[in-house]
Amino acid sequence: MRQYFGRKLLIYFITFFLAVSIDWLIPRFMPGNPVQGMIARANLSAESAKMIYSYYMQAFGLNIPIWQQYLNFWIAIFHGDFGTSIWLFPEPVIKIIKDAVPYDILLLLPAILVSWFAGNHFGAFAARSKWLDNTILPIGYILTATPYMWLGILLAWALGIVVHIFPFSGAYAYSMMPSFTWGFIWSLAVHWVLPFLSLFLVMFGGWAIGMRNLIIYELESDYSHYLLALGTPRKLVRKYAFNNAVLPQVTGLALQLGVIVAGALVTEIVFSYPGIGYLILQAIQNEDYFLLQGCFLFIIIGVLLANFAIDVVYVLVDPRTRIGMQGEG
């Protein structure tokens, strides 16, 4: 057991190192220079622009050799320092991310969990009825093949513009300030519906189709046939099939939960929902190295943690993993 997790942890550390290095590299491959962009927007005279440029280059540590920047970056990470945002200068990156994460969790956690439960049960249910299989599953295929943002735009148009039921921009009314009042919570809730629906529907289709295929595979497997040959009630056979078919879906769920912190980029952009996805777009547009780095770092940590969690969960739910481990331990 210890050997198993020891090896897993080592792999995670290597992955973390490589991923973070790439994370550091990517913004620096972007054409242009963040400080230059910042100054260009300020519309300064050539003389003062030059001075301010060299000042900011020094302030952001961009004037030293690239390998030194890289080293400093790692040192800073271990001090918990993600740098200062260029876009929202002088806010520290960590604070900007902290403000955005609650919106991601609020939006994605329910969307992922609810679609997972509903999709799995619906998929398993559809697998046993030819009628449902032939009518509703094509809809599932269409749903899961639909791009989030397109469905988002459709929903915003249908329920926001044509019927005027739900607002479709922001996380709460622009006239409000975040506070613990009923008015604000209500505003938060109505603004939440459309982005939630667009995510939920697409994910639901995906889970349902995956589960339907897995269930059919399990119902065709030898143990199901044996139970049926012994005249076992279909209920028990289906229960076993579901328990086995859900295992791969658990992996999928964990991976989805891992990218919660990444937000749902396009959905958040469509609905101007202030999560991490929205931040990433802003960071790219403003060449904000540090904010972009910070967001990606969050995603890396989230994915790795989720993967690790799933390793642990698998050991708990699937005896085959557990026994495989004893064999090698």
Binding site: S221, D222, Y223, H225, Y226, L227, A229, L230, G231, T232, P233, Y240, N243, N244, L247, V317, D318, P319, R320
Partner: peptide, 26 residues
């Protein structure tokens, strides 16, 4: 209707006996 007879009156050791048991259940 056959379910009443299966297992109690007539039973089978299938060709695939090696895989006949649910792998994730004791």
């Amino acid at each position: 209707k056959m379910d009443d007879f299966r297992f109690k009156e007539i039973s089978v050791i299938p060709q695939y006996a090696m895989n006949a048991m649910n792998p994730t259940c004791k």
